[in-house]
Amino acid sequence: MNLFLQLAVNGIYAGSIFALFGLSFALIFATTKVWHFAQGAVYSGSALIVVALATTIGLLPAILAGVVFATLGGLGCQAGIYGPLRRRGASMLVIVMASLGVTIVGENLLSILFGPSQKTLLVDVGGPIIAGGIVISRAQLLAPIIAVAVVGLALFVLYRTDFGRKVQALIGDEELMQLQGIATGPIRMACVAFGSAILPIAAVMLLLSGTGVSPYIGLPVVLIGAMSLFLGGINSMLGAAIGGFLIGFVENVALYFIPSSWQAAFTYSLFLAIILVRPTGLLGRRLIQSSM
């Protein structure tokens, strides 16, 4: 029983972080219609910056630096690559390949700058809380709070503000939105900025518990984000966050029943099963259109 509770604690922790991955990927996909693989490089780059700076300038300024990097990175991809390619009429496949290219170049650049190996955050955040044989680290306490706060903020803005309605409109029908006299560019950029800025926040939640970061951890994060998107349903931010949470939670709790070497296979099989039964995802109404 102890093991199950411990795995559940770990699952809530991982799920909270994966929820942010899901939200980030879904928000950027919904507003740009781009499979933003380069998000992987933005993620690992910002995490590496946090790790590198935390010991010299302190954790909070380092996080701020990571957020700035991620935001600029995300905006750079959109303004420098996806936007121009789209204006030139490039097909979605071309944009996806460009995005993958950015990831690979980014990984290599980060590897040159920070070295290829995994780094951990060397900041003392205090020991874990041990209650009834269950170990709960500070990061594990913090992560669900941050996740609920970030997802809650995003949903509040989306559904309760003028700006949010514009975002919804952009997601729904960009051309129709322009016809209302609203410029889509700034709104799209704001969404890309927000979606990118939450990546280092998620990374720090992981780093605080001793999880490492290397230039090569980006693509798995994108994969989790994309799976969350499919699982939650296209164009549903809440769905993607819930999808991400479920992936993290199930992946951990499943270990009560299966050996850890089967963890990945189990998660992907479950994902496939859900998608086969409900192709529109849990909260989605539409199939993801193949626009390649």
Binding site: R165, Q168, G172, L176, Q178, G181, I182, A183
Partner: peptide, 23 residues
């Protein structure tokens, strides 16, 4: 650009379902 034209008080209602269905 279309959004500037719209702000010049020209409206275009395209054919069929020119609404935001998810709102």
């Amino acid at each position: 650009r279309a959004d500037r034209m719209a702000r010049r008080q020209l409206a275009f209602v395209p054919q069929g379902k020119a609404i935001f269905g998810e709102m």
